[in-house]
Design a protein around this nucleic acid. Structure first.
Length: 585
RNA sequence: GCCGAUUUAGUUUAGUGGUAAAACAGAUCCUUGGUAAGGAUCAGAGGCAAGUUCAAUUCUCGCAAUCGGCACCA
């Protein structure tokens, strides 16, 4: 999908369109006051204060109509330059613009504003020459948005839209939005019976149906086997922990609002665990370690529970009950570089296996708000520069983002975009000097002295839940053979063939460990074939008299029209090989 | 959590202040069919809890869940 910000012409067009939107809103809602209207990847928005009045999606056509009307009048867009003083005078009745102007640092800055007909807005520009150039736009959605992005402030109303240079581009974009909805994992998850939710179970707590459970089983096996081969040691730990455990780790202070409330039993207090680090710290501590033992890698596919904000919950992407592909690497400070490198390599390996191409690495650093991060500037500076160096040495293409770190340290996040455009973290690798301190972790160094290990927190698949969501969307539900809940469907041409050859083939495939389904319903061949396709089953076997006579099978691949025939045994070994090697035909 | 919208059968949708229409899926029967929907019959529904009303699926309020954003995301 197009990124408006990456195209200069489109950026200008969309920014001008934001002004046009504001002008139309001002006509229809004279009390409207305007905050900012920037260009974003998907077009533009404008944040508006309408007082008591509320705009809903139903009002958008009306606003669009007014925009078209203004555009048709074709007023020129005129730039005007003011001193700060003049600007303050010009916008003296508009508290939002006063706020913006006062925040411009230097006294003698030139402040520009743009006028079109009866509307003037403070703006850096540039803009198109006349509103006449704004023809192919669409208002997309409305929502509330906190003033200055701070939940403590009042909520303004935000209107989103997008503008193109011609009709075709606009149509194409709107069509792409429709197509994105088609591969939304929530839609696919329902159609392919991957997962369900129920209000009696609760928000953000999906249930994995047999098909989904099979995908999950394979994913878990896949990553566990890979990790074991890389000398990770897997453990099982309880899904609950005492409140004291989280007080020790520091998570209680930072996240207690986002945890399910504590349970009091007799005189003990427990919580459902929101993460696994503390348990793993204690497992490390269960032994005395020599520098020779390091690094020690403790892994677990662990269930965690977080009281995610109700508005944040989304299908399998953001849930309140999740399964993390978690591990903690305990190493010496000298080993951090190598360990980080091997985690990055594992991530790249895994993404290659799944064919993921669209992702980016984000170095997530601490922000300015002191209380969000553990207060030890020296530790942070050390961790951040160390991590930056490791990534640079790896030659990794990454970008830096402030205020995205964990409270205990900086991290490398792998960001992907969901079908409907959410920017989410899939994998993460985090550097931590804090928890070893809090849990007083040590190892014995070469001189026989106690030393602090460093902890690397990492999740490759992230959570199995979110990973599955992304996988579904990337594959449009046509999963690779090795992950398909049903790999082969056997369709006898008619029920006369049910009891004999088709059944025999079905049993033989099943015995070979292939996930196979026999569709011997009393339905026409075309009907059953269609269902095999809509269910996106990789192989469809069609068996009739011809196949029976020659001991062969005729098969069709998902989304392909042609049929191939081969001996049954040949087919079995071919499919088994493809499953084994995790490849598709 | 905040702003806004939505909630009708297993699914997707229609409609109404006088108890609901359909398609697909399901069951039964007919059909024995060679590459994306054969036919007939049957069964099945207004999230939950209140209020207004002679009467509420429809209007109002509350709760829940879902959706679009905002904020949050260890």
């Amino acid at each position: 999908m197009i990124n408006i910000k990456e195209h200069e012409n489109l950026s200008i067009l969309n920014h001008s369109c934001a002004h046009l939107l504001a002008q139309a809103v001002k006509h229809l809602y004279p009390q409207a006051k305007f905050w900012v209207g920037p260009v974003i990847e998907e077009g533009f928005y404008y944040d508006i204060d309408l007082g008591e009045e509320v705009i809903s999606e139903e009002d958008l056509p009306k606003i669009e109509k007014e925009m078209k009307k203004i555009a048709k009048d074709g007023k020129r867009i005129v730039r005007e330059e003011l001193t700060k003083e003049e600007a303050l005078e010009k916008f003296k009745d508009d508290p939002y613009k006063i706020d913006l102007i006062s925040r411009m640092d230097e006294e003698n800055t030139i402040i520009s504003c743009y006028s079109q007909g009866d509307f003037t807005d403070l703006c850096r520009g540039p803009h198109v020459d006349t509103v006449k150039q704004l023809k192919y736009f669409k208002l997309l959605k409305v929502s509330g948005a906190y003033f200055k992005g701070d939940a403590k402030n009042k909520m303004l109303q935000r209107i989103y839209g997008i503008c193109f240079e011609n009709e075709q581009d606009l149509e194409k974009h709107l069509q792409e939005l429709e197509e994105a909805k088609e591969r939304d994992h929530r839609k696919l998850g329902k159609e392919l019976k991957i997962f369900m939710t129920h209000d009696l179970v609760g928000k953000g707590m999906p249930m994995w149906l047999p098909n989904g459970a099979m995908i999950r089983y394979e994913l878990e096996k896949y990553i566990k086997d890979k990790e074991i081969a890389l000398d990770y040691q897997h453990v099982y730990t309880p899904s609950l922990g005492s409140v004291d455990l989280y007080k020790t780790s520091g998570h209680w202070d930072h996240y207690k609002e986002d945890m399910f409330p504590k349970m009091v039993v007799d005189d003990e207090e427990f919580v459902l665990r929101p993460m696994n680090c503390p348990h793993h710290m204690l497992i490390y501590k269960n032994d005395l370690h020599s520098y020779r033992d390091l690094p020690i890698r403790i892994g677990e596919l662990a269930h965690d529970f977080r009281y995610e904000a109700s508005g944040a919950v989304c299908g399998l992407e953001r849930v309140r009950c999740m399964c993390q592909n978690d591990a903690h690497i305990f190493c010496s400070i000298n080993q951090v570089g190598d360990e980080f490198a091997s985690v990055v390599k594992l991530i790249l390996d895994v993404y290659k296996d799944f064919g993921f191409k669209d992702y980016s690495f984000r170095l997530s650093l601490r922000g300015k708000e002191k209380e969000k991060y553990f207060d030890d500037d020296e530790m942070w500076d050390k961790a951040e520069s160390m991590l930056r160096k490791v990534l640079t040495d790896l030659g990794l293409d990454f970008y830096e983002a402030e205020d995205e770190a964990a409270f205990y340290g900086p991290k490398l996040d792998v960001q992907v975009k969901s079908a409907i455009g959410h920017d989410v973290t899939l994998s993460t690798c985090q550097l931590d000097f804090l928890l070893p301190e809090r849990f007083d972790l040590t190892y014995i160094n070469e001189e026989g002295k106690k030393e602090r290990p460093v902890v690397i927190h990492r999740a490759i698949l992230g959570t199995i839940d979110r990973f599955s969501a992304f996988l579904l969307e990337e594959t449009k539900g046509a999963l690779p053979l090795w992950l398909s809940p049903v790999q082969v469907v056997v369709i006898p041409v008619s029920s006369l063939h049910h009891e004999s050859y088709a059944k025999e083939v079905y049993e033989k495939l099943k015995k070979s460990g292939i996930r196979v389904k026999l569709d011997d319903r009393n339905e026409k061949l075309g009907y059953r074939l269609r269902e095999a396709q809509t269910q996106k089953i990789p192989y469809t076997l069609i068996l009739g008299d011809q196949e029976k006579e020659n001991n062969t099978v005729s098969y069709r691949l998902y989304s392909k029209k042609d049929t191939t025939s081969c001996l049954l045994d040949e087919f079995i070994s071919r499919v088994k090989e493809k499953i084994e090697k995790k490849i598709n035909e």
